[in-house]
Design a binder for these strands. Structure first.
Lengths: 252, 252
DNA sequence: GTCTATATGTGGATAGAC
DNA sequence: GTCTATCCACATATAGAC
């Protein structure tokens, strides 16, 4: 009820540092001592402000996902108002969903690439409380976008759309997380990957923009790929064998 | 030199159990006590046989990646012998790379889906020794496949190919890892996602097959998507604006 | 090769003074 | 709200008997 006046910024400083350390080391490998040490606050401060380490992680995400969820819903609302009753183009839906997220990477006030990387990595953490948390946080948004895709691709089986949404999330998460073999193995540096811009101009913001420009065509290409051919069920698949192999191309 | 006779199968049992527990909980959250307890061997056995927990993880992977690396190289060799000097079709390269992996999921003797899931999750673990390990294990194979893709897609900038290889790896890893929000949120069960087969017939092997059938078209569609349009550099982009937007379609 | 016992460190959390 | 001091569970690793 009563406004906290002595909040100073201890709370926010813990959140900022925790965001970075969880991103760099993962949840399990980041200790509260590492966090409070780097944030230059007392060890007991985390438990005082958040209650537990688990609760701290949740708060790190809640702070950002609140904005992201609202923005994603707003973006979809805007699109659907333009075509009242009609169907959206898949590219519009992907842009609203993935573009909104990727734009967070360009804005340090929204966590920038640090948060994006953290998100990409944490999505695959097996800890149950983490999976449960994300399931709850994402439920509404995923449901809305799933339905939008169903309407946008009425000829594609819904199970297939769910799979492809799944694949798209993976491509994005992994690309964002950036903890991968490729960068090390290929010897291609981030700067090179980001484009041809001179090194001194390069920053996280530019990286996020480049990533978006390269990722969106890939995702759209995957989403609109020909439907798979199943061998086993051996259903009566008499009608024009070319049909299924044709690409899904509903006005992009 | 001398063959160990009293090896019994303690070593293998530790590896099998560790594979499963690392998959379920992640590296950090899996203790040696959990492993030795489940494997019903003595706590000291891990250090005796492998030296340390880190070395155990490496051995869990080495055991499977040895086969995978050889098989991937053999598959590429076979293809390149068929078209001596010529270029392969992107679909052939993807089939050799991703198909070989996904077929491990159908074969319990190669670790089955347990190993695939472990691999998908561990690739994003931030621990440095893990990243270093994978970089070394994958170096040769990635290099060979990268070059094959360069030749197969001579008109696509190499940086773009690296990015897309990156995206493809992500889509696959994430789909395999399966620790995601979608399955929980959408309420779609694994059985449903795998297809329309009755539940009693469903198993890991069938899941791996279905995953492959659904993933391959997606990956190919993404790989062959139109090249991205960059706004910033503002290079002289006079020549037919349609060209860049056209899909990459080198005889599939 | 296997076992017990133990060394040695670190983790998250909290009680209670200020 | 912040701090010190401390509890206690659990981690990896090893020494040394069998």
């Amino acid at each position: 009820m009563s406004e906290q006046k002595t909040n100073s910024d201890t709370r926010e400083r813990i959140l900022d540092i925790a965001e970075r350390l969880f991103m760099e080391n993962g949840y399990e490998a980041t200790s509260m001592r590492m966090i409070t040490g780097a944030a230059e606050v007392n060890l007991a401060a985390v438990n005082y402000h958040f209650g537990s380490k688990e609760a701290l992680l949740r708060e790190v995400f809640r702070r950002r996902l609140g904005w992201l969820n609202e923005e994603r819903l707003r973006a979809l609302d805007r699109l659907e108002q333009q075509v009242v009753g009609g169907a959206l183009k898949p590219s519009q839906i992907l842009e609203a969903f993935f573009g909104t997220l990727l734009r967070m990477g360009e804005n340090p006030a929204l966590g920038g690439m640090t948060f994006l990387r953290l998100l990409g990595r944490t999505l695959t953490e097996p800890a149950e409380f983490i999976q449960t948390f994300f399931a709850g946080e994402y439920a509404e948004v995923i449901e809305r976008y799933k339905r939008a895709l169903y309407r946008a691709l009425p000829d594609v089986p819904q199970a297939e759309i769910v799979w492809r949404l799944h694949f798209m999330l993976g491509a994005m998460s992994y690309a964002i997380a950036g903890t991968d073999v490729l960068r090390v193995v290929t010897g291609v540096e981030v700067g090179d990957l980001a484009g041809e811009m001179p090194a001194e101009e390069f920053d996280d913001s530019a990286f996020a923009r480049r990533l978006a420009q390269r990722l969106m065509p890939f995702l759209l290409g995957g989403l609109r790929a020909p439907l798979p051919q199943f061998d086993e069920p051996a259903v009566k698949q008499k009608e024009s064998p070319e049909k299924a192999a044709r690409e899904i191309r509903p006005e992009i």
